[in-house]
Amino acid sequence: MALLNLEIVTPEKRAYSGSARMVVVPGAEGELGILPDHMPLMTQILPGEVQVTTESGEELYLAVGEGFVEVCPDRVSVLTDMAIEEVEIDEKAAEEAVARAERELRDQALGGEELATVQASLLKSLAQLKVKRRSRH
């Protein structure tokens, strides 16, 4: 069976590297499932979760920030700000971050720049929570 060579990199580290049967990424135009022999594609991704089906059929979830994905028939590279594996996510910290961001959005009349920053961090924290909570169901 054909496999994908998946690489998830952030400026700080190589968050994941290995072979996978399937990868689902949060593309700018909607969720994007990638199987081996996909046609070469390059697109933007939004904060959300990446689902990886590993060689052994195990499913892994990672929370990612915004970035890009480069798809070749046998290789997928994900470039992103942040990539955190499910086990590393601190649910409490993420919840607090969400609460803080929501409070800031509600209470203060933020300027355009600050608003965008807070919204971006909110999305990232929400992505972490989404990944973490899924593991319990």
């Binding site: 593309g27 700018a28 135009e29 046609m39 070469p40 594609l41 390059m42 697109t43 933007q44 970035g67 890009f68 480069e70 070749c72 028939p73 470039l79």
Partner: peptide, 20 residues
């Protein structure tokens, strides 16, 4: 080499890549 498909389009991807 690989002829990529760009989504939404090449300019859009460039727009996003350059700040990075």
């Amino acid at each position: 080499g690989a002829q990529y498909l760009f989504e939404p389009d090449a300019d859009g991807v460039l727009d996003a890549v350059l700040p990075y």
